[in-house]
């Protein structure tokens, strides 16, 4: 269960942010980052993402061996057993995708690990970045699981945000449908 999900557009601006908090966290100790902090976070991630590719060590540049890039498929589990034939927007069937996929993110930052949490970044071919912050407490969550989750969120984005005719590109996402669907998806992790 991720702590937070952010969506960053092509130019590095934060267009969506959602916290998913578990109930046990003590509220007094947590100093919630302000919205300004989050904007700074998003643009910092965006720029360091670009710097990371320039820091590729010479040893790898000389090696020129393509590194494995495939993300194995992790199916969605459904603990609450919601409606068995739930509609997945424009995706037919019971899951958004069923095969392992190529990770588009070859030399940008994929994850940042700290003491308390890990930040995972998934970038699409169009430059959109999906960021998930996951606490380190759970053992089952690793990079593969989060990449699958982020790809599913990308499918939701392509449906509920892109197909909304009143949504202007690169602007903050205000769609409630997207919000609700995202929360349901995350609950199923």
């Amino acid at each position: 269960m991720p702590q937070a999900v952010l969506v960053i557009n092509k130019s590095g601006g934060l267009i969506y942010h959602r916290d998913f908090e578990e109930v046990e966290v003590e509220v007094e100790d947590r100093n919630k980052p302000s919205s300004n902090d989050l904007l700074i976070l998003a643009s910092t991630l965006h720029s360091t993402f670009a710097i990371a590719s320039q820091l590729t060590p010479k040893a790898i540049q000389l090696q020129q061996q393509p590194l494995p890039n495939l993300v194995p498929y992790v199916p969605m589990i459904d603990p609450d057993n919601l409606v068995p034939r739930k509609k997945l927007g424009s995706f037919k069937g019971d899951d958004y995708f069923k095969e392992p996929f190529q990770n588009w993110n070859k030399s940008g930052i994929r994850s940042i690990k700290t003491d308390q949490f890990t930040v995972y970044i998934y970038q699409s071919l169009t430059g959109l970045k999906l960021v998930a912050m996951v606490s380190n407490r759970s053992d089952t969550i690793n990079e593969t699981v989060v990449n699958n989750l982020l790809r599913r969120i990308y499918c939701l984005y392509s449906d509920y945000v892109m197909k909304d005719p009143f949504y202007s590109l690169e602007m903050p996402i205000k769609s409630e449908l997207f919000d609700t669907k995202l929360r349901n998806l995350v609950k199923q992790l």
């Binding site: 966290v25 100790d29 947590r30 100093n31 980052p33 902090d37 700074i40 976070l41 910092t44 991630l45 720029s47 360091t48 710097i51 990371a52 590719s53 820091l55 590729t56 790898i60 590194l67 890039n69 990770n103 993110n105 070859k106 030399s107 940008g108 930052i109 994929r110 994850s111 940042i112 690990k113 700290t114 003491d115 308390q116 949490f117 930040v119 912050m133 990079e143």
Partner: peptide, 28 residues
């Protein structure tokens, strides 16, 4: 890069314990 990511994670972290950055992974 390390400095900006470090200050960013410290801003976002919660709780009294210090949250130090440990590792950054890219595709390569």
């Amino acid at each position: 890069m390390v400095f900006s990511l470090r200050s960013m994670t410290q801003k976002v972290s919660s709780g009294p314990l210090k949250n130090e950055i440990k590792s950054i992974a890219t595709g390569k």
